[in-house]
Design a protein around this nucleic acid. Sequence first.
DNA 1: ACCTGAACACCGTTCAAGT
DNA 2: ACCTGAACACCGTTCAAGT
Lengths: 245, 245
Amino acid sequence: MPAKSSKTPRRATHSLEQILSTAIEILDREGSKGLTLRRLAGELGGGLGSIYWYVDGKDEMLSLACDALVGRALVAAETHTSDGPALETDDPVIVEAIGDLRRTAMALFDQTQIHPWLAPQLHAQGAATPNSLRYWERLGRPLARIGLTPTQQFNGSTALSGYVTGVAAEMSAQDLHADPHRPKAERLDEIVSQWLASDPDEFSWLHSMADEFRRHDDDEQFAAGLDLLLGGLVRQALARSTDRD
Amino acid sequence: MPAKSSKTPRRATHSLEQILSTAIEILDREGSKGLTLRRLAGELGGGLGSIYWYVDGKDEMLSLACDALVGRALVAAETHTSDGPALETDDPVIVEAIGDLRRTAMALFDQTQIHPWLAPQLHAQGAATPNSLRYWERLGRPLARIGLTPTQQFNGSTALSGYVTGVAAEMSAQDLHADPHRPKAERLDEIVSQWLASDPDEFSWLHSMADEFRRHDDDEQFAAGLDLLLGGLVRQALARSTDRD
DNA sequence: ACCTGAACACCGTTCAAGT
DNA sequence: ACCTGAACACCGTTCAAGT
């Protein structure tokens, strides 16, 4: 413990975890455009350049932040439980595998709801980070277990991960540019009233969805589409197993 | 025709369409980060500030560019044909509706393949542009025609549009940071060899997908997942119609 | 080994001035 | 009505200098 007090200003001390967690805090609070290296340095109480000792640049920092959150999703996927949809089968292998997929997908979706910048950011950066690969692996294994062909496994896994981040990004986008202090119901109302101002002939279907949109719950909406995909995968599995019989 | 020649430099003349189309050209050529207002002004042969007479800023310009491409997808969706998957029914209403959805989804996917920056950009900007609303309307109407409940229509339409842009963004991301001059097969090989360097126990499934990944075709992969969703929607429709019988 | 902050080469946006 | 480009307030990144 150096107890030597002096007039020279204290030098700040950082760590990669500390940098990433306050970066995530800023992103959650101010959005993607609100994260600035200067602001981050200020919040860390240090100098601008020191960040570059831990990280190669802003892009790598964002990539690491995403990877950390995908990591949290992986942890949550192992602990969470979920009641899945009614399946066409009670084959325990299939029921367990589909439940696993559902938990995995839901866990990442949850993270994108907590961190609205996450889904678009995951798409903006293509690099396959370690936890993204683990996530993909976690989507693939159950598909192999239920007996799909390699092509079906491959297509199914990318369909699932594309669906998760796609719908998540779609939902985040509505919150992204909105004032976070206004209650959610008010924001939905405002969006709906914009629809209703559009041509009721050209947008007749959209108009018919106004109530639906006001009532909707993001989690249920996400789960509903997910179950369409999972149901399709179950059918592929069942078609295969009757082939073999 | 003013034939008066003079020593004073010619003033450039712009139009919104011209600005958007050269902006799209630059985006296609150089990617999202390559588009700069200064570069755009240079390529237009004019001054930097004049762009602001036509457009409120860079964000609006990107939004308009996206909207234009969604517009092209809408046009293509009406002219293209596609052979859909084998359905569980030959109800002409359902067959026609599913074919319509398939064409619409494919048409936007095609645009995202031509313009790799499009899918991530669509997600980054939440604002519902005119053609995005038309696109959504085009996804919703067929779902109403086949007799789904309003909630099913709503969830189904957002699942479809989330899937389309999600998978599209996923695929674009692989090309985004890659050297576009190298042949596609080489790039795939390089990605696969990175996988194979990972732990074969932790990533056993991923390793088993190496060949699949090398062989895969983005269009087929996209269509396969799309058909999972469409198949699920057909089943919902059939379940409803037997309820009524 | 780790931190600092001035300096550099960029951005998007604004605006007084032009035609 | 439309265009221009200097000026402004930012960025991310680099690096010589510090501890």
